[in-house]
Simulated assay, not measured.
Amino acid sequence: MFNLEKERLEILSDIHKLGYESLRFSIFNEHRPLEWETRIEFNPETKEYEVYATMDRASKGGVFRFKKFEEAQEKFIKNLELTVFINKTSVDNGEVPEYSSPLWEKTVEDSR
Rank of each mutant, 00 (worst) to 15 (best):
F64P: 00
T89A: 09
F66C: 04
Y52W: 12
V96W: 08
K60M: 06
A58H: 07
K60H: 13
S101F: 10
I77A: 05
Q73C: 02
E95G: 12
R57D: 14
T54H: 09
K60S: 10
E74C: 00
F76G: 12
R57A: 13
F69L: 00
F69T: 14
A53E: 07
A72M: 15
V84T: 04
T89E: 08
E95T: 09
R57T: 08
Y52Q: 07
E70L: 04
S59F: 03
T83S: 11
A72E: 14
Y99I: 02
T83K: 14
F85G: 10
P102G: 05
L80N: 07
E71T: 09
E71R: 01
V91P: 04
K78E: 08
N93K: 07
R57E: 14
F66Y: 09
F76H: 04
Y52K: 04
S59E: 09
G61I: 12
G61D: 10
D56C: 09
K88W: 01
F66A: 01
T83C: 03
I86S: 08
G61N: 05
G94Y: 13
Q73G: 07
N79F: 12
V63P: 00
F69W: 05
K75D: 11
T89K: 03
V84K: 09
S90L: 13
S100T: 15
T54L: 12
M55A: 14
E70P: 02
K78P: 13
V63E: 12
K67I: 13
N79W: 08
K68M: 04
V91G: 00
P97Q: 08
I77S: 09
F76E: 03
F76P: 00
F64T: 11
L82F: 03
E98C: 04
K68W: 05
E95W: 12
Q73T: 11
V63H: 00
A72V: 05
K68G: 09
S101V: 10
E71W: 05
D56S: 07
S101W: 02
D92P: 05
D92W: 05
S59I: 11
Y52E: 14
K60P: 08
A72G: 06
E70A: 09
F76V: 02
A53R: 06
F64V: 03
E74T: 00
N87Q: 03
A72D: 10
K60D: 15
F85L: 10
L82H: 15
F76Y: 13
F85Y: 15
E95K: 15
E95M: 10
S101R: 12
M55V: 01
Y52I: 00
P97T: 08
E98G: 12
I77Q: 08
Y99E: 06
E81R: 00
K75C: 12
R65W: 15
G94W: 05
F69M: 02
I86C: 01
P97M: 08
K67Q: 07
E74M: 01
V84Q: 07
K67G: 06
P102D: 05
K78C: 03
K67H: 04
P102R: 06
Y99M: 14
K88Y: 07
T89F: 02
K88C: 10
E81Y: 01
V91Q: 02
T54I: 10
L80A: 06
M55T: 02
E95Y: 10
D92N: 11
A53F: 08
F69D: 11
Y52C: 10
E98L: 15
